[in-house]
Design a protein around this nucleic acid. Structure first.
Lengths: 204, 204
DNA sequence: TAATTATTATACTTTATTTGTCTATTTAAA
DNA sequence: TTTAAATAGACAAATAAAGTATAATAATTA
């Protein structure tokens, strides 16, 4: 008699909805380029070929959409990260893949996007971002600790330190003069990966 | 008794004014990234470390500023172009330099910027842009005709055709597979320049 | 130094844009 | 055919941006 499916909103069915996905993709692109502040709901709808009413059926407002975009981005990044960590290649290759990923920047959040999360406190995104970052950071560290358990990362390594270190080292790797020491970027990546994995001691 | 210098506004003295230059540079950067529409006067002032009042002393509004930015960009581009054309290197080297310039995109107007000139008719920039383009186009053609007079460009070449052609050819040169046929991008540029200058006939 | 001029910060009004909601219609699916 | 989903357009309310006025400060120059 009483079918609750008709009463309780089918929240998570959105995921497969074409329009919902179109809005997410379009907004991600626009947010990436220009940040949240500069992009209007109307613009997103126009680009995603949807109407405003449909937009508001899915998202209460632009800010919540931005949060969702951030969520999905992190989810995706973590998945990529996990795939490399749990991959059954050697430690050195894993590290190479991670460096590659970092260099390509495919896992990098755009500057314009992040600015609106961090700087313009007015949008109310700052704390959300910080919370999210903490969670992701923890998840990433957990993955690395897995590597310690599996034995291909030494147990006395400070993972938190490694994370900070890897953030700082990327610009250095993009140095033109450094690149010239190698016959290809790939060779540089291998060299760095080996340094990180094996240090400077000879492999026994 | 009557000093007209005090009455007639010293219009063109702006050119050397620090603040004026700061506003132009800042706005160019912002317009380049986001287009005119998305950038606010207040934002420009903030970035250029100047006040709104100073802004309005130099420019009646954002649109006039955008026009000025376009003007200066074209002026600069034409100067670069002229420098190459009137340079006393060989025809082939001239062409190499021009191709290089095109590839670097340093003389390319940004897409975001141009969008606001072309698409959003509301800003009233479209006709201004078209007029300007005509003038620059003509100036460019005139430079090339100089080359014809000087004898290093054959007299029966249709310069207008060459212009269209060179616009279309750039993306082709950025093709990865094409680049792989050469040991360096520079070699590709030399090859293309030689083709344009000498055609396929052997140099006598 | 005093006078002049340029610049700024702030507050404020006006104008324009954006938001979010409401309809009446159209389109698509069951 | 009925039901649900999506759209276009109009709209009031909220927000943001433009542009002006004023008083206070800093920088120049005579």
């Amino acid at each position: 008699m009483c079918d609750f499916n008709n009463i309780i909103p089918l929240m998570e069915n959105f995921k497969n909805n074409k329009k919902y996905i179109a809005i997410l993709n379009t907004s991600r692109e626009l947010f990436w380029k220009h940040g949240v502040r500069r992009v209007t709901v109307e613009e997103i709808c126009r680009e995603a070929k949807t109407s405003k009413m449909t937009f508001y059926r899915f998202f209460p407002d632009k800010i919540e959409l931005a949060k969702k975009v951030l969520d999905l981005f992190y989810e995706e990044s973590l998945l990529n990260f996990r795939k490399i960590i749990r991959d059954d290649s050697s430690a050195s290759v894993k590290m190479q893949k991670m460096i590659q990923m970092k260099l390509e920047g495919s896992n990098e959040i755009s500057n314009e996007f992040i600015q609106d999360f961090l700087i313009s406190a007015n949008l109310g995104l700052t704390s959300y971002f910080e919370e999210k970052l903490k969670v992701i950071w923890a998840a990433g560290i957990k993955e690395f600790k897995l590597g310690q358990d599996e034995g291909w990362i030494r147990k006395d390594l400070n993972i938190e330190f490694l994370f900070f270190f890897s953030q700082k080292i990327i610009p250095v790797l993009n140095d033109k003069d450094l690149l010239n020491l190698f016959s290809s970027p790939q060779d540089l990546i291998v060299e760095v990966a080996n340094l990180i994995i094996y240090g400077i001691a000879p492999k026994e």
